[in-house]
C-alpha cells in the first residue's frame, strides 16, 4: 500500500464542512435507534458496518415496527441502490489502485464523498488511496461518535432546521451539479433527471425517486451519445 500524508490530509480537510452537515443525522440515528429497541452497541455496530445514514434510519424504523427481517434488509438494499452507480463511475478513476485499496475505497462511497470525488476529479487531481482514506475516515469516525452520543444522551439536537443544518447537503450537491455544466449534454441530463425525480418523488416516493431520476438522465445521455472528440474520463 502506498501512503502519502499530504494526500490523506487534503482528504480530511475537504471533508470537514460536509461532515459537520452530516453529524446531526448521526446523533438523530443514535437517538432513534435506542428508542426503537436497539442497545447502544447495536446502534454503533449498524453505523460502523452500514455507514449509510438514510438506510440506517429506514432500517430502525422498520425494526421498531416489527417488520419481517428479510424485508428490512431488502429495504436497506433499495435505499442504497443508487450506490451501484457510484462505483461504476469512480472505479474508472481508481485503476491505479491495488484490488484491496479499491474495494476498501468503495466502502466509503456515501453521497457527499461521491460528490467530493467528482469535484476533485473535475479539478484534474488524482483520486489516490491516501486521499480516499483521509476523506473516508473523516466521515466514518465522527459518524460513530455522533451515533454513540445520540444513543447515550438522547436527542441533543432538538431542531436541526432552526440552524439550517438539514439543508446543507442539498446546497452542496446543487453547487456541484452546477460545477459540471461544461460536461457533455449537461443541460439535457439535468432537466431529464430533475423532472423524473420530482415526478417519482410525488408519485412513487422515497427511496426510489433518486434511482428513477438518475436513470432518466443516464438513459437520455446514452441515447444522445457523445461527440466524437469527447475526452476520456478514465486516466
Amino acid at each position: 500500500m502506498t501512503f502519502t500524508k499530504s494526500e490523506f490530509k487534503s482528504g480530511v480537510v475537504m471533508s470537514i464542512p460536509m461532515v459537520l452537515a452530516a453529524l446531526p443525522f448521526g446523533v438523530l440515528f443514535g437517538t432513534l435507534a435506542v428508542k426503537n429497541g436497539m442497545t447502544i452497541f447495536e446502534s454503533f455496530l449498524m453505523s460502523a458496518t452500514l455507514f449509510a445514514g438514510a438506510s440506517q434510519l429506514v432500517g430502525i424504523e422498520l425494526f421498531g415496527a416489527n417488520v419481517a427481517p428479510w424485508l428490512i434488509v431488502l429495504s436497506i438494499f433499495a435505499v442504497n441502490f443508487r450506490h451501484i452507480l457510484y462505483s461504476a463511475v469512480t472505479g474508472r478513476y481508481m485503476t491505479h489502485m491495488t484490488f484491496m485499496e479499491r474495494y476498501l475505497s468503495f466502502f466509503f462511497l456515501i453521497d457527499p464523498l461521491y460528490a467530493m470525488i467528482e469535484e476533485r476529479h473535475d479539478r484534474g487531481e488524482k483520486i489516490s488511496f491516501s486521499w480516499m482514506l483521509g476523506a473516508g475516515l473523516c466521515f466514518w469516525i465522527p459518524w460513530q461518535i455522533a451515533t454513540v452520543i445520540g444513543a447515550t444522551f438522547g436527542n441533543l439536537i432538538a431542531n436541526p432546521e432552526a440552524i439550517g443544518i438539514d439543508f446543507l447537503l442539498p446546497v452542496y450537491f446543487m453547487s456541484i451539479v452546477m460545477g459540471f455544466r461544461k460536461r457533455n449534454n449537461w443541460a439535457v441530463i439535468v432537466i431529464a433527471s430533475g423532472a423524473a425525480s420530482m415526478f417519482a418523488y410525488h408519485y412513487v416516493g422515497s427511496p426510489w425517486y433518486v434511482t428513477i431520476g438518475a436513470l432518466a438522465g443516464i438513459v437520455v445521455a446514452a441515447i444522445i451519445g457523445l461527440p466524437k472528440d469527447a475526452k476520456l474520463v478514465a486516466e
Partner: peptide, 18 residues
C-alpha cells in the same frame, strides 16, 4: 460510456430536485 459520464449530474440532480 455516455451514460456513465451522465451519472454525476444525473444522480446529484435527482437527490436535489425534490
Amino acid at each position: 460510456d455516455a451514460g456513465l459520464r451522465a451519472v454525476p449530474a444525473a444522480v446529484l440532480t435527482a437527490i436535489v430536485a425534490p
